[in-house]
Design a protein around this nucleic acid. Structure first.
Length: 1016
RNA sequence: GCCCGAGUGGCGAAAUUGGUAUACGCGAGAGACUUAAAAUCUCUUGGUGGCGACACCGUGCCGGUUCGAGUCCGGCCUCGGGCACCA
């Protein structure tokens, strides 16, 4: 190589062959060395092959892995194939080839494409989820779950994709449609296997806090997905309905009444429950609908059934519903409230029924307004003076309760509002005053306006919102005030006005303010609150506050005939959903002997607690936690997946395939199209299906459903550690050394599926003692997409796909690697730019050209250049560690630009440059390294070190500011003292210009950085 | 509606976490080499004013804290991602 142009094809293939031959990237097993396990989310080998966006993450991990190798770690950096599942099967169906054949072909393509980029994967550890030796262990894990009761059969309606002809999990939906084909999905009752992931919901949620090196956005997404809500379940008695409705006669249900249970996060608002709503599919609906309402209800249920899932959620703007004719009894006040059905209540969340509190829930409010249902406020906003202010409540002072009126007055002629400006507090308020004993609030407001502003003629318009409570310390009265404030809105009839007293004049000034400026100088939240309510119109109050209207009536308190806690027996009409019935998370509050008679005056959090206590004492409800996360629907009625290792026997039921019989191999079939009848194509292979029951030896039939695409990926990272072990899924000693994955990199789209499933399986494996750690992935980073040059996603549809093969062919693997790292922050999505790629190529060519200036004999490197070299070594190392690969590249560019200006450069400097470049551009670095006469691979070298002493600048540009504005920079010694700096700075002509006529107030000195002269 | 994240030149983006805003790269313009083009090299490149040194403005918008704000606080606007009638 003599020119600056280099033949990338030649050197890339040369070194790829050599590295392979020398087994350079074989994983070390010397457990005395520190280990580093760096993992990419393994690819799904689709038929389309790779585009340039796919390898971005692999390039980054490869750089990281190579640096760790050079730093002396045992590095595990494996790759494999996630190849079961719908996409592969649909591809095979479309192209009329067997999925086995198409999958093998796709893998070969992917492998070839990846190999060209020169990755340091240890191919000895390659895995493939469709390999029976691999999925044997996927099946084994399923069996362990089955044995622990975590895998169970269910017949509940599930999401069904009519186009893919299979059941799906909640996670397989995207915007209410099938994530694979975009079809509208249906609900279909069918037999299915389900994994009890909800049992792990709380642990998965809490343990997120143990993962400081995960991106917080992904943790937030998981928290959101798990969706924990704390609250209570409450039983509502159905009026005039006896237990004969119940399908089962429980010995605990000695009472004859029938109940419906709701879940609520706001038990404190139970007194405001003025009606009751069930989901249209709720099993109890049929039983409680009265004869008169039957026709309406049936018609409504039918109309809801015709709506797709999507219409019902996203597009349903207006709420609809219908009265069932029955009433429920509100347990806290004995009131009869109508039971409606409405499709804004979902069968799939909570208990499928709600208590409606229109005063404090937006949806209930909307519904109540539409259907004229009563709205009863039971919580009011509460404000306490904030901590820093002088009016903070004082424990040592008495408290006086007062009823207060806020008078909001508008002059319609000028469209302005009357406010009082208080100079003392630098704020404005409405006219505010106490209501005298026996005085009407409207009159009180008028009186106050007259006294404080002199305006005589006001017309009452309406009251704004409901009352608010304010607690503060009244300085002038030396007492705490608990004010119950209401706001009355008046309009000015005419501008007739009395003189007001001098005293009032001094306190505040009456001003008229336009609508936009009303809240400008308002500082008290309680004052602002009413203004917001006034402007937005009537809205329900969903926040926290103080309870009102919440007295337990005597007849309810004295009623001893309340049902016991035993009524939570899970009987169907009580609570049809398992999550609630068998809720493990219930904590009983210890019984309180004092009878609670009212929740009035309690803050929301206290009111919740008290209410739960009250309900629990009477067996009317209990504390409960609900999750959005649903159990994982785990069976697919399709061919291309791991067979579920279960045998059905008429006598013994579902029986596990004995472990020694694993794997249950996926049989070869001619026709693998899904039937659509809710059976997998495997059902047609009689000789495979019919078998012997392992338990009784009688006739058994194999389970014909297969596992979903996400099964293998839920544990594959463990198999890399010990890929050929045929005794256990992973040797526990090896696992202890290599686990957890130190660094995991992949797409953010896996935040709520793969990463939730894998954490679930891992925790299960931990529980059964198969692995050593509770969490699989220590550090997680997500890779940003590469968009096409036109800013759209790369897709066949737009014809904007760039194939890495073409890029490698034309510009070389190294240029592509450097460019993809340089294009922007790793996790951010970014558009491809061919010009940018060419720029990266130029950078490599510059390095190539530099070698012509190398002097082999001793060459003293200039101090400033040497400093830059060491700084760059430091920065590149730290940036790789912090995954700031774009700035690592830019740092190297800066160094190269500086070296380029030199006529001669030292061999040592050049070698250091090559060492830090090598993870990014392994082929060219290895080639140049060899060209210098080195016999051993550059990747066997030690990562270069920098000298911290050398890095320190001797001279700095001292920034000189006057009043924060840059006026001069002066070169000084880096360790200049404050005294010297000030003296030098004040001598500067440029600075004198700005300071000569001014008075210097003070001088700020920041060591090694700047001087700021403050003048007046 | 709720939960994240982000708004900096013509573009991709930097900024030692409160201390010279726009590093590095791309693009553009001018010049050198060339018969010419490509490639390569050199210079210029936030805006306004000025021949100029220089001055003023400038990190989505408004306000605040500070000697000093792209960075911190409060209130908006816009875009991206996730969830979504979640009771």
């Amino acid at each position: 190589m003599n020119t600056t142009k280099y033949n990338h094809k030649l050197i890339e293939s040369k070194w790829q062959k050599k590295w392979k031959k020398d087994k350079l990237y074989e994983t070390g097993e010397d457990q005395k060395k520190p280990k580093y396990y760096i993992l990419d989310m393994f690819p799904y080998p689709s038929g389309a092959g790779l585009h340039v966006g796919h390898p971005k993450g692999y390039i980054a991990t490869d750089i990281f892995a190579r640096m760790k190798m050079m730093q002396g770690y045992n590095v595990l950096h494996p790759i494999g194939w996630d190849a079961f599942g719908l996409p592969a099967e649909n591809f095979a169906l479309k192209n009329k080839i067997h999925p086995r054949a198409s999958t093998d072909k796709n893998i070969a393509t992917f492998k070839r494409q990846l190999a060209r980029l020169g990755f340091s994967y240890d191919w000895e550890r390659e895995i493939n989820t469709t390999d029976p030796e691999f999925y044997k262990w996927t099946q084994w894990i399923f069996l362990q779950m089955f044995k622990k009761g975590l895998a169970y059969e269910s017949h509940e309606p599930i999401i069904w994709c009519p186009s893919c002809k299979t059941g799906l999990a909640q996670e397989d939906l995207e915007g209410g449609k099938c994530e694979r084909c975009g079809s509208d999905v249906e609900r279909k009752p069918m037999r299915q296997w389900v994994l009890r992931i909800t049992d792990y919901a709380n642990r998965m949620l809490n343990d997120l806090d143990k993962l400081p090196d995960w991106e917080s956005s992904i943790k937030d997404m998981q928290r959101n997905w798990i969706g924990k809500s704390e609250g209570a379940i409450v039983k509502f008695k159905i009026k005039n309905k006896k237990k004969e409705l119940s399908s089962e006669a429980s010995e605990l249900s000695s009472k004859n009444d029938s109940f419906v249970t709701v879940f609520t996060t706001r038990p404190d608002t139970l007194f405001g429950a003025t009606y009751f709503v069930m989901a249209p599919e709720h099993p109890t609906v049929k039983k409680i609908t009265t004869q008169e309402q039957k026709a309406d209800v049936e018609k409504y249920i039918k109309s809801v059934g015709n709506k797709s899932e999507l219409e019902r959620t996203e597009l349903a703007k207006e709420k609809t519903g219908v009265f069932t004719g029955s009433y429920a009894i509100n347990p806290v006040n004995g009131k009869e409230i109508p039971i409606w059905i409405a499709d804004y209540v979902m069968m799939c969340y909570g208990t499928g029924a709600i208590m409606a509190v229109p005063a404090h829930d937006g949806r209930d409010w909307e519904f109540a307004k539409k259907y004229g249902l009563p709205i009863k406020p039971v919580v009011v906003p509460y404000f306490e003076a904030s901590r820093d202010m002088k009016d903070k409540v004082r424990e040592d002072m008495p408290t006086k309760k007062r009823n207060v009126v806020y008078a909001l007055v508008k002059n319609s002629k000028t469209n302005k509002f009357l406010l009082l400006k208080c100079p003392e507090y630098k704020c404005s308020t409405y006219v505010v005053g106490g209501i005298d004993e026996g005085e009407n609030i409207v009159d009180a407001g008028k009186r106050e306006v007259l006294e404080e502003t002199g305006y005589k003629n006001l017309k009452f318009i309406k009251e704004i919102g409901s009352e608010v409570h304010v607690y503060y310390y009244a300085m002038h009265k030396k007492e705490n005030r608990y004010a119950v404030a209401r706001c009355i809105y008046y309009e000015l009839e005419n501008e007739e006005r009395d003189e007001i007293s001098e005293e009032e004049k001094n306190k505040h000034e009456a001003v008229w303010v336009s609508e936009e400026d009303v809240d400008k100088d308002m500082i008290y939240e309680n004052i602002i609150h009413f203004w917001k309510v006034f402007r937005k119109g009537e809205e329900c109050f969903t926040g926290e506050g103080i309870n009102i209207n919440s007295d337990f009536p005597d007849e309810v308190l004295s009623n001893t005939k309340t049902p016991g806690i035993g009524a939570f027996d899970g009987s169907e009409d009580c609570c049809p959903r398992r999550e609630i019935q068998n809720c493990h998370h219930v904590n009983s509050i210890t019984c309180n002997q004092n009878i609670t008679k009212s929740l009035n005056g309690l803050k929301t959090s206290d009111a919740k607690e008290k209410m739960i206590e009250w309900l629990e004492e009477r067996g009317l409800g209990k504390k409960a936690i609900n999750y959005k996360l649903k159990d994982w629907v785990f069976s697919r009625q399709r061919y291309w997946g791991e067979p579920i290792p279960i045998i059905h026997c008429e006598k013994c039921g579902a029986v596990a395939v004995p472990e020694e019989d694993l794997p249950v191999k996926l049989p070869d079939v001619k026709h693998y199209e899904p039937s659509g009848a809710g059976e997998s194509p495997l059902a047609n292979i009689k000789e495979w299906v019919n078998t012997v029951c392992p338990k009784c030896g009688g006739h058994g039939k194999r389970e014909t459903n297969t596992m979903p695409q996400w099964a293998g990926s839920s544990w594959y990272y463990l198999r890399y550690i010990d890929p050929k072990n045929n005794k256990v899924l992973v040797d526990k000693k090896k696992e202890k050394y290599w686990s957890p994955v130190d660094f995991y990199v992949g797409g953010a789209e896996h935040a709520t599926r793969h990463l939730i499933y894998a954490r679930f399986w891992h925790k299960f494996l931990f529980d059964i003692g198969a692995v050593n750690y509770e969490e699989p992935f220590k550090k997680l980073r997500h890779v940003g997409l590469i968009m096409a040059e036109d800013g759209r996603k790369m897709s066949k549809r737009w014809g904007n796909v760039i194939n890495p093969d073409d890029i490698v062919e034309k510009y070389g693997a190294d240029a592509m690697r450097v460019y993809e790292m340089f294009m922007g922050p790793f996790s951010q999505s970014c558009a491809w730019s061919t010009n940018g790629l060419i720029g990266a190529g130029k950078f490599l060519e510059k390095i190539l050209a530099l070698r012509l200036g190398i002097k082999n004999k001793e060459l003293r490197i200039r101090d400033d250049l040497n400093r830059l070299l060491h700084k760059t070594v430091k920065k590149v190392g730290e940036d790789i560690e912090g995954f700031k690969l774009n700035t690592a590249v830019s740092a190297m560019m800066i160094l190269v630009n500086a070296l380029e200006k030199e006529k001669e450069i030292s061999r040592e400097a050049y070698e250091k440059l090559l060492l830090i470049l090598s993870p990014f551009a392994p082929h060219i670095a290895e080639e140049l390294w060899g060209e210098l006469g080195n016999k051993e691979s550059i990747f066997k070298q030690k990562w270069p070190e920098y000298d911290p002493k050398l890095i320190k600048d001797k001279k700095i540009q001292l920034v000189v500011q006057v009043n924060g504005k840059l006026r001069d920079t002066i070169e000084v010694g880096a360790d200049i003292s404050e005294e010297d700096a000030k003296n030098i700075v004040l001598e500067s002509e440029k600075i004198k210009k700005w300071t000569k006529n001014e008075k210097i107030v003070k001088i700020i000195f920041v060591k090694g950085r700047l001087v700021n002269i403050v003048v007046k």
